[in-house]
Design a protein around this nucleic acid. Structure first.
Length: 460
DNA sequence: TTGAAAATAT
DNA sequence: AATATTTTCA
């Protein structure tokens, strides 16, 4: 029916106002294309220098839906640009070229979400620019485990069913012709397939000409977006920057100080977060100064997840988790009692940590995690470096924790118990904020609290 | 299935 | 910017 006009004449509502970053060192061309794009309702930001475009993308990648860039750039190779951009975000990129070689197309093909568009670019092509974004959305959605309804939110979907099918059909096809330079027909988005079958098909339907550059030539070829990895060297650089900046250490400044290409501020921020938690945690680690290695020191060298700290704002939720937390702890302790076994703090509380994570109440990040202390190299290696579980802590219920209970345990009491536990106060005897006493304190907290529970009944 | 690490959301 | 939550990965 009128779908031809709808597809070639207008931009589907869901793609109107698409935010495009347009990069072209040729100012005239830049402005021409930009104004044409604007006429089609698109939101265009123009940049002449690729390097600047890159830094803009790094800072505000979320402000754009599509990047269009001319392959002729002086400051860097255009695929370097593509790589850098895709490292920041999985965003569709259109390369514009007046001289499209086979190599270029193939290389573009190797990058997910990277397409080649022949210059000059007709109005019609510009109108259909949104299809790249659409295609990209589909690709992204299909990577996810829920394929059904993945495209429901895009209303344009059903319209060009013919065109879609076409795309599907083309899946898996290889480019077979040997032409060095691809010339696209006067309109529509260039398609790579030039072999006979396709060629004859495409003359039939107008809409065929709007089909997208074939990207997913091979199913198994899907390239995942790279996940950055904090190497030792990078981390070293990071720490150095943080050190230098001291109090002023903030993601933005750190990024500048480090001056590492492709690194984003968000990544720094995230790393900084981890860095700080670890530093916080390190406070609980006893420095390995003494040459005498006694049992408590060995213990302190064992990674030991300790007490989770509640931050939830959601009262109801928090109650539930408090309950849950106590119940789990209770169970562990009961078992210890029955078997007359010492409490294995490490595994008990470690498990709790994962319970919290699963419940999205806590992540491991919030569970204090006592890291290893570097061993004194002059110290002969211990024969058995297996940490012993701590002695059974004395079961001393806190004085007033369960005062006024009258035999009935309510959620409130559990909450109180939890809150108290959470603070895990240092025992009066320990003046040092170090791990071994800390661990004992916590054991005492837990067992004390639990004894309270046991007293009141059957342990929740 | 899990914990750690990275990414993303608030 | 800081921190909480979710996703990814081995």
């Amino acid at each position: 029916m009128n779908f031809e006009s709808s597809i070639s004449g207008t931009v589907p509502s869901s793609f109107r106002g698409l935010r495009i970053l347009l990069v072209d060192k040729d100012t005239t061309c830049l402005l021409n294309v930009a104004s044409a794009l604007k006429e089609h309702s698109f939101n265009v930001t123009t940049i002449e220098l690729a390097t600047i475009a890159l830094s803009i993308l790094r800072e505000q990648i979320d402000e754009f839906d599509l990047v269009m860039v001319d392959v002729n750039m002086t400051e860097m190779d255009c695929f370097e640009f593509v790589r850098s951009t895709q490292l920041v975000k999985d965003i569709p990129i259109i390369l514009m070229s007046s001289m499209t070689t086979r190599d270029m197309v193939e290389e573009a093909d190797a990058h997910e979400a990277c397409f080649v568009l022949m210059k000059p670019i007709s109005t019609k092509k510009l109108t259909n620019i949104w299809q790249y974004v659409y295609k990209h959305q589909i690709r992204k959605a299909s990577t996810k485990p829920e394929p059904s309804g993945a495209n429901d939110h895009v209303e344009v979907m059903d319209e060009p069913s013919g065109a879609n099918k076409k795309i599907q059909d083309r899946k898996g096809q290889k480019i077979v012709n040997s032409t060095e330079t691809y010339q696209d027909e006067e309109e529509g988005i260039m398609t790579l397939e030039k072999d006979e079958t396709e060629g004859s098909k495409r003359t039939r339907n107008t809409d065929e000409d709007h089909s997208l550059v074939s990207k997913n030539t091979m199913e198994g070829r899907q390239k995942k977006r790279q996940r950055m990895e904090w190497t030792l060297a990078l981390d070293k650089k990071f720490k150095k920057a943080v050190d230098e900046l001291g109090q002023r250490a903030r993601p933005k400044l750190i990024l500048e100080t480090m001056n590492v290409p492709h690194l984003t501020q968000k990544q720094i921020a995230n790393h900084l977060q981890r860095y700080r938690t670890q530093k916080q945690q390190a406070k609980y680690v006893q420095p390995a100064t003494s040459s005498i290695v006694n049992q408590s020191q060995i213990m302190s060298q064992t990674p030991l997840p300790v007490v989770p700290i509640s931050h939830s704002q959601d009262g109801v939720n928090e109650r539930y988790h408090q309950f849950r937390f106590m119940r789990e702890t209770s169970t562990s302790l009961q078992e210890c009692h029955q078997e007359k076994q010492p409490l294995n703090v490490e595994s008990t509380i470690g498990n709790l940590g994962s319970v919290f994570q699963r419940l999205s109440f806590h992540t491991r990040n919030n569970v204090l995690n006592l890291k290893e202390v570097p061993m004194n190299v002059n110290e002969p290696l211990q024969e058995a470096y297996i940490p012993q579980p701590p002695a059974v802590p004395s079961l001393v219920p806190p004085n007033d924790l369960f005062a006024g209970l009258n035999g009935e345990m309510t959620e409130n009491h559990i909450g109180t118990c939890y809150n108290w536990l959470e603070k895990a106060p240092l025992s009066s005897s320990s003046t040092q904020d170090n791990s071994s006493t800390r661990i004992l304190d916590i054991c005492n907290c837990i067992s004390g609290a639990l004894q309270g529970l046991f007293i009141c009944g059957d342990g929740i």
